[in-house]
């Protein structure tokens, strides 16, 4: 087995609405290796989110083959895909998706509810993850009292607490000012150096420039510059 983590072969996604067919993604070929820091960049409407949802197992592709850690997930049951999400994939969203009524620690612990982390380990792992993103001093706060950058770092802590195989980030800096953006991007660099695989989808070239590999999307097609 190579260090291949994700392999897309001719993956497409067609949306049907009545008689209208929209091919949001066409013949996408993509390989993500373990430990890679990959960025997918493109204008809005180019199909980035569609690709990300398929990679993240939130959506099903309509053509082609998708292998995750060597397993063909194309025909996988919904339950098995859910299990994969719980154990192997970490999410960071543009809008953070933190529960306002829970403390920072409780928000981080939530990602460990649905996988096999034993209850007595959760708090320690949440604390470690918060420590990793530099927010251990905010553990008892509610998200409403945090800045945007801090909230996104809590979301990252939540994602890495389950020790996923890959961290998938959808416009992670879309709601942040430049200072917060910088702090998040620095965190990504650190996580990258820890060996975590990062997939960052963005429309911002400045953000994608931090990745070691950039894939461009346009009109549902992928194109990879030969070198950066």
């Amino acid at each position: 087995m190579t260090d291949e983590l994700i392999r897309l072969l001719g993956v497409g996604r067609t949306f049907r609405s009545g008689d209208i067919e929209v091919r949001a993604l066409r013949d996408a070929d993509l390989e993500v290796r373990r430990g890679e820091y990959l960025s997918i960049v493109g204008p809005s409407g180019s199909g980035k989110s569609t690709l990300l949802n398929i990679i993240a197992l939130l959506d099903r592709h309509t053509s082609g083959t998708y292998r995750f850690e060597g397993t063909d997930v194309t025909e996988l049951s919904e339950g098995a895909r859910t299990g994969l999400r719980a154990h192997r994939i970490g999410f960071v969203f543009q809008s953070f998706h933190l529960l306002a009524h829970r403390t920072v620690t409780e928000n981080v612990i939530m990602s460990m509810l649905y996988n096999s982390v034993p209850p007595r380990e959760r708090r320690a792992r949440a604390r470690a993850a918060l420590d990793r993103v530099g927010l251990d001093h905010r553990a008892g706060f509610r998200p409403g009292r945090l800045s945007g950058g801090e909230r996104q770092r809590v979301a990252i802590a939540r994602a890495i607490a389950t020790r996923p195989a890959i961290l998938i980030c959808d416009e992670p800096t879309g709601n942040l000012d430049s200072a917060s953006t910088e702090s998040v991007l620095e965190l990504f660099d650190d996580l990258r150096s820890d060996g975590l695989t990062l997939l960052v989808v963005t429309h911002d070239d400045a953000v994608s420039a931090r990745a070691e590999r950039i894939v461009r999307m346009h009109d549902g097609r992928l194109s990879e510059p030969v070198a950066v």
């Binding site: 060597g70 339950g79 299990g83 719980a86 509810l113």
Partner: peptide, 21 residues
Amino acid sequence: MAVVRLRARLRVRDLFAEALA
């Protein structure tokens, strides 16, 4: 096919805690 065995789960205690929250 090790990954297929990674089922999502939710402990009953956690379920109650979440519902209560």
